[in-house]
């Protein structure tokens, strides 16, 4: 690894031997290059691998892979912290299968975002899929989002790979985050007029805080949601154009907050994904990046009249 090339290879394995033969040289190369080498995964399932590759310079990854967005931003932080040292980061990890179609779709979304999110960094990832237990349709999706396979004999190109953006569009089409049901209660409807300055922002923020109080979200989740909404609101006031509308809906223990502005829209589908951290020479904005990490999911829709950002949160 030399400059900021980010690689992200697919490992399909059917036995411990195959896995170890694939991963061990990759780990050894990383250690020799002085990279940080992290091996994730449950030692109960990947015990043989951990045992085979453990040694000086190899870290056993603990947490991580809880949610796709936390995993992505976690790697961004890790890589960014190493930019000063010049060290690269190598990560070897099984991708969580997910317990529901929505969760599975979200991990595919993660895979399709890796190349962009970690693009500025010296990152090399191996995504491990055990063909013995992974449903075939997930293997198929994994083939969609990796440029290369890695096996015991090294790297080979993946002719099945599709453009990331196309995959993301397909996932969003097939597995949209559930919209509010027709009988969802409107907890707040507030408008900020065109020309409203940042001073005007505290009023809807206080209204959101009030609406979330005793609304079923645990205190910490409500605080995070409020912070996420506030960042999106700031963004709409700074980059969009008024009037800015805020709609907060709830049904059971789910919440939807839609912030709509009347600016030129948010064209970049990677908004809030690109790293705002100082090691990224093209550092992006921080607000939506943080907002994505503070709520369950954030959807950006462009309408003919502006941008509409939906923040989802569930108790």
């Amino acid at each position: 690894m030399t400059t900021s090339t980010c690689t992200h290879d697919l490992v399909l394995f059917g036995s411990d031997e195959e896995l170890i033969d694939t991963v061990a040289p990759f780990v050894a190369d990383g250690v020799a290059a002085g990279d940080r080498v992290l091996v994730h995964g449950d030692p109960g399932q990947l015990g043989a691998l951990h045992e085979a590759v453990s040694g000086p310079g190899v870290e056993s990854g603990g947490a991580g892979y809880a949610t796709p967005i936390a995993t992505l931003s976690g790697y961004q932080r890790l890589c960014d912290a190493e930019t000063a040292s010049g060290r690269g980061v190598r990560a070897i990890a099984p991708i969580p299968v997910g317990s529901s179609p929505a969760a599975r779709a979200d991990w595919t979304r993660y895979e399709a975002l890796v190349a962009r999110a970690l693009g500025p960094y010296r990152f090399a990832g191996l995504c491990l899929y055990d063909t013995r237990v992974t449903p075939p349709e997930l293997i198929e999706r994994a083939r969609d989002v990796h440029r290369h396979f890695r096996g015991p004999t090294g790297l080979r190109p993946n002719a099945h790979a599709r453009p990331d953006l196309e995959v993301l569009r397909d996932i969003d089409g097939a597995h949209p985050w559930p919209p509010p049901p027709p009988d969802a209660r409107t907890a707040l409807a507030a408008d900020l007029p065109a020309g409203a300055g940042p001073v005007a922002m505290s009023t809807p923020r206080h209204a959101v805080r009030e609406a979330l109080r005793d609304g079923g979200l645990p205190h910490e989740r409500a605080q995070e949601y409020l912070a996420a909404i506030s960042e999106v609101l700031t963004n709409a006031l700074q980059h969009g154009r008024g009037p800015v509308q805020i709609r907060l809906l709830t049904s059971d223990d789910r919440w939807w907050c839609t912030v709509t502005d009347h600016g030129s829209g948010i064209d970049d589908p990677y908004t809030g994904i690109d790293s705002p951290l100082p090691g990224n020479p093209g550092a992006a904005g921080t607000g939506l990046w943080v907002a994505r990490q503070l709520c369950d999911h954030l959807t950006i829709n462009n309408t003919p009249s502006g941008a509409s950002v939906v923040l989802h949160q569930q108790a």
Partner: peptide
């Protein structure tokens, strides 16, 4: 420090 800080 007391209160709230935002872009205002």
């Amino acid at each position: 420090v007391h209160g709230e800080i935002d872009s205002s």
